[in-house]
Design a protein around this nucleic acid. Structure first.
Lengths: 245, 245
DNA sequence: ACCTGAACACCGTTCAAGT
DNA sequence: ACCTGAACACCGTTCAAGT
């Protein structure tokens, strides 16, 4: 029963009873850590019950003692990885004279970058607060910055949800483009992009003026830049609405 | 070989040779229409090769003559449904004195509403312009409105991508919350929401001030309202940046 | 050109039985 | 309390063979 991997962020026993001297149930963490390893190597598609069991050195049924099924496993794996995002932004917003919007921006960027690094995260991060404690805490942390703008609860809720939606949505979209090719490593991002560019250039300029207008930007674009530009639009709008209050 | 369904938007033959009198290859359209029916009834999970073949009255292998695999089938099904969005916004932006941002807003809302009606759309709409002609045309149409703001190609590209990312991301997130329950109809949206609300209220208010601040809004929120509020923030930011040019 | 039957190589999940 | 082996009920895809 080979257990590699650093321990995952949260340690809990199946019964929920906290152990005396942090001896840690050890196995739910090993399951999640193994899942993360597989996800990093071969994406969500590669995370099968049998592959995980093989890595853990057991039978495929053993996993079901720790987790209700594959969906919960994915949720937990995604959330476990967000612990590092949380610590990365732990100091953000602590001082009262920090700019709330700049703070919100830092949190959003940190979350986005984590998803870019692990494309499989996009589909499972921040989607089930009942199971995902770090997701909830990131949501809370982001919301606290927005709260400082003095908006109504309703506007506060809307703004925070908008930021999360934009981050997750954009990141998920960017991480999903190459479904099989990226996992199998047959085709790089550049080839895929180049293919789309050739297709775009071949379109009728009269019918697709916009596509032709931006095709050069598309050809040389960087996902992170694109994300930040969009995020800044959103945050500019938020700042405006905070000033209007 | 029962063929129900209105004809899908694009009619093409396998060879790509256009038929003389729109006699339509008929079968690729039937395959896509059947796929859409299944997707509407039971979601992406329900669309299996065998289920589709059964509905079409043939063997599971027959589908592979029209489509390279399940992924392409999903792409085509998603895109076929966007034809109606495209016609719904066909007149938008035709007059030169229309407000570009109001026009962009209408397109974004129409797209969002389509995804709310068909949650399975979220994961497959607007993600592969090579295969999805209506997605490309919607992107173009939206981009044309942004173009009218007189931004640089780069800002134009960023703004349009941001809007699409926000729409798809938010819609996909909202449509995915109830993974199995919604398909099997065991639990309504209200029960699910109520569960999250009770969990939120049980959190420590000192640790989760934001969650407590917005929990009432969350409890009674409408997805469409929430989306529109976020979209308006984004568009406000865009208008600001257009004014600054 | 289009479709079939049957098979291949997998899946997630369950469940009796073990320790 | 935790794990195993083996099975169940599926999957997507391929491929020879038909028409």
């Amino acid at each position: 029963m080979a257990v590699m991997s650093e321990p995952a962020a949260s340690s809990r026993t199946r019964t929920g009873v906290p152990r005396g001297r942090a001896r840690a149930s050890h196995s739910i963490d090993a399951v999640i850590a193994g899942a993360v390893e597989i996800l990093d190597e071969s994406g969500a598609q590669g995370l099968t019950t049998r592959a995980l069991a093989a890595r853990l050195g057991g039978g495929p049924a053993s996993i079901y003692w720790y987790v209700s099924g594959r969906e919960e496993l994915l949720d937990l794996a995604a959330d476990s990885v967000l612990a590092s995002v949380l610590t990365a932004v732990s100091g953000v917003g602590d001082s009262d004279d920090s700019d709330p919007i700049a703070c919100a921006r830092m949190i959003a960027v940190a979350l986005f970058d984590a998803i870019v690094d692990r494309p499989w995260l996009g589909a499972y991060a921040m989607r089930n607060t009942a199971q995902q404690i770090h997701s909830l805490q990131l949501y809370e942390k982001l919301g606290q910055q927005v709260m400082r703008l003095g908006l109504s609860p309703r506007n506060c809720f809307h703004a925070t949800s908008a930021i999360v939606g934009f981050v997750i949505g954009t990141a998920a979209d960017m991480g999903q483009q190459l479904p099989v090719e990226v996992a199998s490593g047959q085709m790089g991002r550049e080839e895929y992009l180049a293919g789309a560019v050739t297709q775009w250039r071949a379109l009728d300029p009269l019918q697709y003026p916009f596509v032709h207008h931006v095709v050069d930007e598309f050809a040389g674009h960087d996902d992170r830049d694109q994300f930040r530009a969009g995020l800044d639009l959103l945050l500019d709008g938020l700042r405006l609405s905070a000033g209007r209050r």
